[in-house]
Amino acid sequence: MIHGKYQTIKLDVEESDVLINADGVLDCPIDTVLRKNKYTFEDLNNWLAKEVQFIVEHNGSESVINTIPLDVNL
C-alpha cells in the first residue's frame, strides 16, 4: 500500500517478489511491483508518495507488517 499526499494506492504483490534484505527487513523491489500493477515511477511521483506499507490480508482483516517512509525525492 502506498500512502500519497492525497490518496492511498493498494497494489498487489506476488509472494515471489517479497524478500528479506541484508538488514533483515522485509522488502520488495518497488519497480517490479509498480510494473506488475501497470504503474510507473512517474505515477509514484505524481501520488506524492510519503510511505509504503506491507499489509497482510487474512479473513477480511488487514495487518501492517512493515512501514517504509519515503523521505527522499524519487
Score class of each variant (00 low, 15 high):
residue 31 D to Q: 10
residue 9 I to A: 00
residue 19 L to Y: 11
residue 70 L to G: 00
residue 69 P to S: 08
residue 18 V to H: 03
residue 59 N to A: 14
residue 38 K to N: 13
residue 8 T to W: 01
residue 31 D to A: 13
residue 41 F to G: 07
residue 8 T to D: 09
residue 18 V to W: 04
residue 69 P to R: 01
residue 72 V to E: 07
residue 73 N to E: 07
residue 68 I to A: 00
residue 69 P to V: 07
residue 42 E to K: 15
residue 5 K to E: 09
residue 44 L to V: 15
residue 64 V to E: 02
residue 38 K to G: 05
residue 72 V to Y: 09
residue 15 E to W: 05
residue 69 P to N: 08
residue 31 D to S: 13
residue 15 E to Q: 08
residue 37 N to M: 08
residue 52 V to F: 06
residue 27 D to L: 01
residue 64 V to C: 03
residue 49 A to D: 10
residue 19 L to G: 03
residue 6 Y to M: 06
residue 54 F to R: 04
residue 35 R to I: 10
residue 67 T to W: 02
residue 40 T to Y: 10
residue 36 K to D: 13
residue 72 V to D: 12
residue 17 D to E: 09
residue 19 L to A: 13
residue 30 I to A: 09
residue 23 D to H: 12
residue 65 I to F: 03
residue 23 D to W: 06
residue 53 Q to K: 15
residue 61 S to G: 10
residue 34 L to T: 09
residue 39 Y to P: 03
residue 73 N to T: 04
residue 49 A to N: 06
residue 61 S to E: 14
residue 16 S to E: 15
residue 24 G to M: 05
residue 55 I to M: 09
residue 60 G to W: 04
residue 50 K to P: 01
residue 9 I to C: 02
residue 45 N to S: 03
residue 62 E to D: 10
residue 14 E to Q: 14
residue 74 L to F: 15
residue 72 V to L: 10
residue 29 P to A: 14
residue 51 E to W: 09
residue 32 T to L: 12
